[in-house]
Amino acid sequence: MTAREDILTRIRAALQDSPEAPQVPREYRAASGMGADELIELLVDRLVDYKAQVAVVPESDVPARIASLLEGAKSFVVPEGLDAGWLAGADGGGASRRRLDSPAEPLSVAELDGIDAVVTGSAVAVAETGTIILDGSANQGRRAISLVPDHHICVVKAADIAGILPEALRRIDGTRPITMISGPSATSDIELERVEGVHGPRRLDVIIAR
């Protein structure tokens, strides 16, 4: 008997009493019912609590905001599908600062390690938990680019903010490579006190475009 057959046989034998699968009571909240301003306010509050830096700007000001955040960066990487207009102000330091990562020409891990910052969009955000979800769409790129550089600049469109987690998860396809981000990397492993900044990007800048 293969291990697979053996284990399935053991489980079936263990369930000889035929326990019934209960109906799952889903009486928890399915939606928050919050308005657009409330959603932004709550998301900002949560992100600040995680020690992320947040700016709420009109969509037209996104390029200027990105440019100012990238001022100190010697280099930055963007996914192929990032809104080209967002980088309008960022090429001032010389076009050579910008590196493009694409499925056809992916950067190596070593190259990514030499890059200071990354700019991505996002799929959906959760106001209540301060969570930004990336699903690997063209404006976010593959997972490595938002992981290796030490500074992540992430643009969240106001329309993509959901109130609570169930609303957000309904908006994404679970079979894509997904990363949920709630603040910069952190650890509580020393005396259970939270320290921000370990292996993931130590600096997270969120730009909420309304």
Partner: peptide, 21 residues
């Protein structure tokens, strides 16, 4: 577990994704 509203990172993967991971 950690007493946080959400943990900093959660990763989800479904088999193999070409060009990612």
């Amino acid at each position: 577990s950690t007493g946080e509203r959400m943990n900093p990172y959660t990763s989800l993967w479904t088999g193999v994704t070409e060009g990612d991971g």
